[in-house]
Amino acid sequence: MSTQVSTPAKRPTGEILFALVFVSVGAAGLLTAGSIPIPPSETGIGPRAFPYIVCTMLVLVGSGIVAQVFRGKVGQAEESEDLDVNAKTDWLALAKLAGFVVLHIFLIEPAGWPVAAAVLFSGAAWTLEAKPLWKAVIISVVLALVLQYVFGGLLGVSLPPGPLLEGVPFFNG
C-alpha cells in the first residue's frame, strides 16, 4: 500500500476519462431534471430538488477528481489475492469475458439456461487459460446441469431448461 508504483504516462488519461463519466452523468441529470413533472398538489420541495442536489454533487466531485489527477494524485488500484499488480492489463481477456456474457444473454431464451451457462463457463475458463480445455468443457456441462437441477428442480427457481432438457422432469421443478 505504501509503495507507490511508478505509473506509465498513459494511465492518467483513462483515469480522467472515468472521472469525466461522473461529471457527465451529473450534467445529464442536471439538464433533464427540469422535465420531471411536479404534481400541483406538491407543497414541499418536490421531486426535482434531490436530483439537482445529487447531480451537482456528481459534477463537483468528478471535477475535483480530474483536478487531483492533473496535479499528479492518481487513484490507488485495488489489491486482491489473485492479482499480479505488476502485470499489464489484459484488455483482450476483458473483451472476451464481456463477449461471453453477451453470448450467454442471447442463449438463455432459445437454448435454455444450462446451455447458456455451460457456454459462459467454458468460454471464461478458456479466456483465463484453463488447461486442458476439454476438462473445462466437461466441468462446465456438469456444473450447468447440477445448478439447473438444484435451482430449477429442487429450489423452484424457474430457469428455462431449453429444448434439449424440456422433457426431463427433475430439471423443471
Binding site: 469475458l97 439456461w113 459462459l120 462446465s140 445448478l147
Partner: peptide, 22 residues
Amino acid sequence: PYLYAGILVFAALGAFSVNFAA
C-alpha cells in the same frame, strides 16, 4: 480459471433469477 468462471456463472444466475429476464 475455474474459480472466476464459476463466479461469472453464479453472478449471471443471480441476475437472471431476479425477474427471469435476460
